[in-house]
Design a protein around this nucleic acid. Structure first.
Lengths: 153, 153
DNA sequence: CGTGAAAACGTTATCTC
DNA sequence: GAGATAACGTTTTCACG
């Protein structure tokens, strides 16, 4: 991956609605090679897909909660049921298995604390959990879907 | 916002590359009213923008680290300098001011632990921090940019 | 890689019912 | 809201330098 590809990815990560012509102009290529590069990166799976980003406040999910989960049930069957239950909750937008003290970390978006409580109850009744702790975000200072392009080979 | 709008948003959050015709067919409208609804939601700012999502592994940023920051400097000047420094780091993809024990939470993406250490050093030399603790994600079980549409009015 | 051009396709806008 | 249509722009493919 060369400088041109990296520039194309920077553009597409910022704004995927731009025309091919506009992208080509910005990266310093003509449309044909620019188009060929985008096709190649889509075929390779570097570019996974294009999505629309919505305004959380206007969608009434302005409250972000990070939920740390600890378990005492370290077996595959439990993990499978827990993961399936969490993935099915639409308010859970991120879900990681962690190293260290905390076993799982969830990011949840809801309109208010009452709505969070309903999600929390759904969570704890899905499977047995050892410890669940919630931390509320007061302010979203940075949120980007754009990955750094500097490490790509 | 009615059921049609919500269905349109579900589609666009999944795949913004689909043609208007395909979206209209899926939500059960003809192209004209579907197009008008999308235009309206873009004008209102409900739909913020369209972006390309890249594969983290192929971009060599497969390692996700959550960094919890505590400070003893609770003044506006410090906060401004800290936020400006963090926002400028491309590896930081999410950055929240939190309630409770932790003052700030960052999500950082890097290729490996050595690269994380370089970001960590950049972070701690930017401003004085009371406590910084890192938690590594072992597995990304769910990650979506799609907000739940059920709360929108 | 670049240019240029043609065909195919999708979008936008308008109008009628 | 549906459906039709026309103008317009973009995407895609191609041949050639």
């Amino acid at each position: 991956m060369d400088e041109f590809d990296r520039k194309i990815l920077l553009c597409l990560q910022e704004n995927a609605a731009d025309s091919l012509e506009a992208i080509a102009a910005r990266v310093g290529l003509s449309t044909s090679p620019c188009w060929r590069r985008i096709q190649k990166m889509e075929a390779q799976g570097v570019i996974q897909r294009r999505v629309a980003l919505l305004d959380p406040d206007r969608m009434r999910v302005g409250v972000t909660v990070f939920v740390s989960v600890r378990t005492n049930r370290h077996n595959a069957d439990w993990a499978e049921r827990f993961c399936a239950a969490v993935v099915a909750i639409p308010e859970v937008v991120e879900f990681y298995r962690m190293s260290g003290e905390i076993d799982y970390l969830l990011r949840i978006v809801v309109p208010d604390i009452a709505a969070y409580d309903r999600v929390y109850k759904r969570l704890i009744q899905s499977v047995e959990l050892y410890d669940v702790s919630s931390a509320f975000a007061m302010e979203r200072i940075k949120y980007t879907t754009a990955l750094p392009v500097t490490y790509a080979e």
